[in-house]
Write a protein that binds this DNA or RNA. Structure first.
Lengths: 200, 200
DNA sequence: TGCAAATCTGCACTGAGTGCGGTTATCGTC
DNA sequence: GACGATAACCGCACTCAGTGCAGATTTGCA
């Protein structure tokens, strides 16, 4: 079943070791207080080798951004015949957030903290999000060729994602760290803002 | 009237020289093909001095982001008694875009091209936009204390800015470089997406 | 004129990231 | 099990962005 060659298994183990070393060091000394050389040493690899696993120091923090995008695309693909584009999008965003109930993980919590505190990490995060948005818009446009053109789809997706991102930003600033409460208030706030679209 | 000390005049002149040198070099060799040392040499200053004018190479490209934010805040401050939050925001976004009819300038055109082609520049641009968004939301919330809480305001602003940004991204990809046409189609697309808010 | 403050700049440094080349480990095959 | 191909590892020397410092120069102001 696990048809993994030794090479691949080893590579995964090393990759995991790098991530764990990095998470530990980031928690201890902060992102900017940790050099790639530190991480490499802790993971027992050469500094040069680090860059054959991750293209940059930031990349380390965004390994599964693809899986969140995939979840959103799945939600579009699995749309029902009654669904309007806005319904599909809202479900997609919920699915993505549900997936991130793995938010309990150390990695995800750390990433969220760093996105909010380290400019370089925030820039990278926003960039990835923006790229994902574009991809989602493309698929949504393809799913509703009669109702949306490319520009309209991009605007719609941008509006939804922007609302969620903006609300989440403020929520994390004010609310405590209780993930359930944050999730609930996020649902409330976005539902309130997006209501004009959903009833009609 | 121009009560500028010699020091300040000189400093402005140098700053302008840096910008012009950089724009020329970026157009000729691309952003990543131009080093800070190249820019400094072309502007006839020491490399070290560059960093006393701009904190980083990217900063060079976003000098007046403050003025666009100010335009948006002005629009909020100048709201009429009949205006709903969404109306104010729409006008704010229009004002910001109108200001950027200085888009004819070399600098702005170059920036737009680089934002779309150079990851580091895009990251920085998105980050500045996000920060501006937060500031706008704060003011909007203060202007409508009965209707918006902080989270709701952030969600609303995020939705509007996200719609415009998403639409503009696709537009610039597909449409030609005619600024008037882009501007018109942008208005159409965002108006279509945001319609649910504006009639009610 | 003269003193204080701001500015300019070279120098030495750190840290991210790349290209190259040699070494070692793994793979598939015989 | 041996063997050639391939992939991974990793040191070295390099480029570039950015910082701290300290000395020289210029400007502001009394």
């Amino acid at each position: 079943m696990a048809e993994l060659t030794l090479r691949e298994r080893k590579r995964r183990r090393t990759r995991q070791a790098i991530v764990e070393a990095a998470v530990g060091l980031f928690e201890e000394h902060g992102y900017e207080g940790t050099t790639v050389a530190d991480i490499a040493e802790a993971a027992e690899i050469g500094t040069r080798t680090f860059f054959s696993y991750f293209a940059s120091k930031e990349e380390l923090l965004f390994p599964e951004s693809d899986s969140r995008l995939a979840a959103a695309l799945d939600a579009i693909a699995a749309r029902g015949p009654e669904d309007r584009p806005a319904d599909v999008l809202l479900r997609a965003l919920r699915d993505v957030n549900r997936d991130s109930d793995e938010m309990v993980s150390r990695m995800a919590a750390l990433r969220m903290r760093l996105v909010r505190s380290v400019p370089a990490v925030r820039g990278r995060g926003l960039q990835l999000q923006f790229d994902a948005q574009r991809e989602i818009a493309r698929h949504l446009c393809a799913a509703y060729p009669d109702e949306l053109d490319e520009v309209g789809a991009a605007a719609l997706v941008g509006a939804f994602v922007g609302a969620v991102t903006g609300a989440l930003d403020v929520l994390l600033e004010t609310a405590g760290d209780d993930p359930a409460a944050v999730s609930r208030r996020l649902q409330e706030a976005t539902a309130a803002v997006l209501r004009p679209w959903l009833r009609e």
